[in-house]
Nucleic acid binder design. Structure first.
Lengths: 200, 200
DNA sequence: AAATAAAGATACTACTTAGTATGTTTTTTT
DNA sequence: AAAAAAACATACTAAGTAGTATCTTTATTT
């Protein structure tokens, strides 16, 4: 196989397996050995492509974790239509569409924020960048809603954005503790109310 | 020293040091050796009092972590006065009163929820119980607010309770990524708005 | 085709981990 | 005061950890 392509495929394979193991079992308790066992490649292969576990962690965050948030929570905000409807759709419909697997294991980003968000500046920056991108996209949509008179003008867009993100990440952690969706439905109900009150 | 008192003091010492290390460095990366080095006692002493690290973790949750939440977030809900004022005071004033240390390291309970909330049923149950207690106390206060006509009657108390808890835990994780309080102030602003809209 | 470099494998080091076995010291019971 | 039990200490085991050194295999360049 062509060398640069082979190298790229191997790195992607490592990143994919690493992401899944980090998500299911946590970052710190996932060893390079466990990751490479999943890829059926060797430890030598890993250290040929990455200089350390930290370097891998950063790539997993900036590639896999970021992509998930962008695809699921950011790009959909850029659609056309009523701003509040879009918010409702993303924060509620999407939450309800999660598989049991995703409900059990929470949000990959939030898991990392709480596990390693205060340990290394590099992780902090990589994770913060995702949050900032998300927040900016939310603010942009809320501002549009104000201009189009579907959202009350006298609310701080940044405040609403931060409050929406906080509650969403919070509930994804808390849901892990439960075996059914009651708590999710209560969150959805609380959020619906919140969004209705933003209506112009 | 009297034996049962000595035993109790040693266990308390271990739990205290364990809580701090779990909080600062995470549960999984805190070893029994590190904990016992802090106590200046030996590993033998540890395994005389606890049968495993898991047993210690459960005691830390049900004693230290639970106590913190009860003292800071639950008991104050039982005070007399306007229900919304109490909510505002606890969720806002308290958040602002946190030391840099607590802002940097987030919420001990939320850290544990996200680090080990999906790993062991026993941890899940212990953490869930704290959330349920908190939620019940919030519902009780909101119900009182409705009876006293300070809170709108047509909102679901459980939904509001869950939404408040979610956002609070969420922001305490997210704050870890930042070096200043801007994000906290935006959260507070978003929450203020939310509470005002609950006013009867 | 030969030389070179990248990709990957194997075997290691030095260290950390939870937990155990067995010892000594301190307190309590008789 | 002697015996028993609890509190604690020391030294270990077996398994796991990140990372390195050195090898073989595969692809690229000349």
């Amino acid at each position: 196989m062509q060398q640069d392509l082979k190298s790229e495929l191997t790195k992607q394979l490592i990143i994919d397996k690493a992401f899944t193991l980090f998500y299911e079992n946590g970052f710190k308790t996932t060893s390079i050995d466990k990751i490479m066992k999943e890829t059926t490649l060797s430890k030598g292969a890993f250290y040929h492509h990455y200089k350390s576990k930290k370097a891998l962690g950063l790539e997993v965050i900036s590639l896999k974790v970021q992509k998930r948030v962008l695809d699921g929570m950011v790009y959909p905000l850029e659609e056309t239509g009523d701003a509040l409807d879009i918010l409702e759709h993303i924060f509620i419909t999407r939450l309800k569409s999660f598989k049991i697997y995703e409900k059990e294991h929470g949000c990959p980003m939030n898991n990392l924020i709480n596990e390693i968000g205060d340990h290394e500046l590099a992780y902090q920056l990589a994770l913060k960048q995702i949050i900032e991108t998300w927040k900016s996209a939310l603010i942009k949509l809320i501002e549009r809603g104000k201009r189009e008179h579907t959202i009350k003008p006298n609310v701080s867009s940044a405040a609403v954005a931060v409050y929406l993100i906080s509650a969403f990440e919070g509930i994804r952690g808390i849901r892990k503790l439960y075996k059914d969706d009651t708590i999710l439905e209560e969150y959805v109900s609380g959020l619906s109310l919140y969004l209705k009150q933003l209506q112009a």
